[in-house]
Design a protein around this nucleic acid. Structure first.
Lengths: 203, 203, 203, 203
DNA sequence: TATGAATGAGGGTTCATTCAT
DNA sequence: CATGAATGAACCCTCATTCAT
């Protein structure tokens, strides 16, 4: 609503730094790392983190959105430059690779995929509250997951129309499969898993 | 070391009851349910839970072990009664279904699979501490995951020898795939996912 | 709803002790004293306070209700045993004396009296939340202030009918006057104030 | 000690504006409004507020003093132009009306009146600290309350000498009564309260 | 042995104040 | 001077664990 004035240069740097550090920490150690710890490792006070991201969930959101937006852009490029089948499988691989490199992203996606009936309660009290009081799916949208779902929908539809993907799988199945692959153990090679799932999806 | 005296009858009953209730709760609501809540729903005091399972992680372990032992037994039956390919795919499906029906199990497996390189921190401070101080892989073994890994190893090897499974996947890949599928969103149907992965694994 | 089992003896003692200490502290230093400090002075951990009174506001409520209930009972005695005018003025004096001896009580009453149009925001976030989401006046009732208001209503009406109190003042005025007198500085003698207000109210 | 150089014109304007905005906010919403919020609504940075009023309490003081000085001036007018009784009761009514229209003023006065024996702690940690470390009654004087007390003293004395006010009340009683009436609930009409108290004070 | 009350470290968040820009 | 980002202590609350009853 109120158009915020652009951040001061140093603040922008600081914000970016916190974001970067938090992204790395969440990626490697998951979302349960205390805010205090993030602040410490970023070399700032806890208040600085709270100023830029008033809630821990806001921090999740900021990080996840950025990553998701990038993935969606990539997906659009694939859709434009490749033929339907290739586009779909490149999207699949790219998304899974991104998620696999990022534990926090995977955790959020896993939680988000489970939003159909039950309230998640996994992530945060704030999430629950928001869900209870306000918009039904706002969490999903805040995180930008709707962007990804859109890409899955259209890329899958096209690939199925082109006969490159078996017709009996739904977008929800694909989302679940991608979300699932992200959480694979780091001990296992990621590429074989992508290969297996891709092959399993082929017509 | 110290040979534990056998539990008194009422104590054994109590322990079993707590275990049962906790298993149900963890299965449906995940591992973050407070111990206090488990005790309450089991109709015992928190002290009773702590007496039998001195740590929350010990409770996880006890539950997971039981479930894993059962899965391993099932696997042995498959190995005995079915031909290699069928046995492998039945094992895969059974394991994934079990995990998918059990949120806590899936959470633990996901965390456990990720133990190869990084220290986990996912589950609990207690876990992290234990892992840090004690034996490097004891978590894995305490949970009984070694039993499952053994089954994956042998069933996969046999199935590959029989030409039923593509030769380029490793046991680690299969474990990761199974672990991954368990965490699929509750919105997506489980069976299509199993079908896709199974098809992808076939020779 | 769920009939709580009676507290264990030691817990009841502890609860009573915390209540007593908190009442004294709130009475002398107001409501803004940290819970942590109350716990410290009561010689218990912060968790113990939170166990008995899950919210700081719950602690206020418990203390205030007890005091208010006692005042209401006293009022009923006056109504029964004295003639209307005397009953009213004894009630006034007793209430003011109680509130004056109790800074926290006075703060709450002052805040509570101001509930007509604006939301108070003075006391606590929890209060505001409750007011926003749930029942409109629940704060007022949780504190038991409705009990006092009832007494003011009836005692005043009777006294006015009996010609002991000037007819142009309302119960709201009386409540405000009582609430006001409670907050008088401790440097000033209370009794002259009561005398002045009582005289001013006489027919 | 160090003779302050006169403020630059823009600085003086800024200071005045902050003062004005803060006065309005404190009057309507009380003293617990964050400094940050005051700065925001005044359209200046938080640093600007802190520069002019190094402490939140300093801001209170500046505002209160101005208001108190005005009240004192009014009192002097009454004393000059009216006969003793009228002057006293006009002073009483004017002071109470001012306080009642001003939540922050009333809060401060209530806190200030209570300074005789106990240390306050109501307003702010800063206040408490200042009170603890520095001069015993400096708060009272910083706020300009001594000015008001002087007026109460002399107006009351004259009115009593003139037989317009009952002789058994002290200035402290009157101050307390005035302070008390300010905090009356917004639901109750102010004038009846003033009427009652005035009548009660008459000889 | 069972109980559940007590503990206290740790979580996220707010806010008066300071200080680099 | 003005700015507003940074600070960090303090607040309230949760919960795994311990221990007196």
């Amino acid at each position: 609503m109120t158009a915020e004035p652009p951040l001061r240069a140093d603040a922008r740097r600081n914000r970016a730094h916190v974001l970067e550090v938090a992204a790395r920490i969440f990626a490697t150690e998951g979302l349960s790392v205390p805010v205090h710890e993030i602040a410490r490792r970023a070399g700032v006070g806890t208040g600085t983190v709270s100023r830029h991201f008033p809630t821990k969930e806001a921090l999740f959101t900021a990080i996840l959105r950025a990553q998701v937006v990038e993935l969606a852009a990539q997906a659009d490029e694939f859709a434009e430059r490749e033929e339907p089948g290739a586009a779909f499988f490149m999207y699949l691989a790219a998304t899974v690779r991104a998620g696999a490199a990022n534990r926090g992203l995977a955790e959020q996606l896993a939680a988000a995929t489970a939003t159909t009936t039950t309230t998640t309660t996994t992530t945060t009290a704030a999430t629950a509250t928001a869900t209870a009081t306000g918009a039904p799916d706002s969490h999903h949208e805040r995180m930008g997951l709707d962007l990804l779902c859109d890409r899955t929908d259209s890329l899958l539809a096209n690939a199925q129309k082109a006969g490159a993907v078996r017709p009996d799988v739904t977008a929800a199945d694909v989302n679940a499969l991608m979300g699932a692959c992200m959480t694979r153990g780091e001990g296992a090679a990621l590429e074989p898993i992508i290969a297996v799932v891709s092959d399993g999806l082929r017509a």
